[in-house]
């Protein structure tokens, strides 16, 4: 049947178009060593700019009130901020809730001693190509991405702290 000729030639064409479309989709997270995209957001204590924190090791965290592991990470981030602030660590947590009230309710039961910013439009997670919630990135003093971590479990804490210590140039075991 001649109809199958169509499948042969045209089908291959369509397959090629779909293949290119799949390749073109942004499915990769930010690469190590790439410059962290700048942001200028509204925060709990005024504007939050990444540029303002250049020269510090930035632990950037994307969180939402509906994200259960985010709740676990807040205590740990408070701990890290207190422990390594003197050595130059700055924790910045960007909230991606659509409603500010949801975020504020979360913050009232999970107080944060670090910088909190709000991005209801989701422009920042898009520019950082966030692949899951929560996502955290370590941004070096030169403004380049050192590492990225998706999710948050108790078991991740040791490795994450070790990365912070390494990036701060602290040798030896923690705690």
């Amino acid at each position: 049947m001649s109809f199958f000729d169509v499948k042969g030639r045209a089908g291959r064409g369509v397959a090629a178009i779909l293949f290119v479309a799949v390749l073109a989709a942004p499915t990769h997270a930010l690469e190590r060593g790439s410059v962290a995209p700048p942001f200028d957001l509204d925060g709990t204590k005024g504007a939050v700019k990444l540029a303002k924190h250049q020269g510090k090791l930035v632990y950037l965290d994307f969180w939402a009130s509906w994200c259960a592991p985010c709740r676990q990470s807040f205590g740990w981030m408070n701990e890290m901020q207190a422990k390594y602030a003197m050595q130059g660590l700055q924790v910045i947590a960007i909230n991606v809730d659509e409603k500010r009230d949801d975020a504020l309710r979360f913050l009232s039961s999970n107080p944060a001693s670090f910088v909190v910013a709000f991005d209801p439009a989701g422009a920042t997670p898009l520019s950082y190509r966030v692949m899951g919630m929560p996502t955290s990135l370590l941004i070096g003093t030169d403004g380049k991405v050192i590492s990225e971590h998706i999710g948050f479990k108790d078991a991740d804490k040791i490795a994450l702290e070790e990365k912070i210590r390494l990036s701060l140039g602290i040798s030896g075991a923690g705690k």
Partner: peptide, 24 residues
Amino acid sequence: VVAILCALSGGCTLLTPVQPWQKG
């Protein structure tokens, strides 16, 4: 046939997947 398939699949570009931060 190719043109119709391209036009139809072009409509799919309007559908953007829900991003991880939009799953509230």
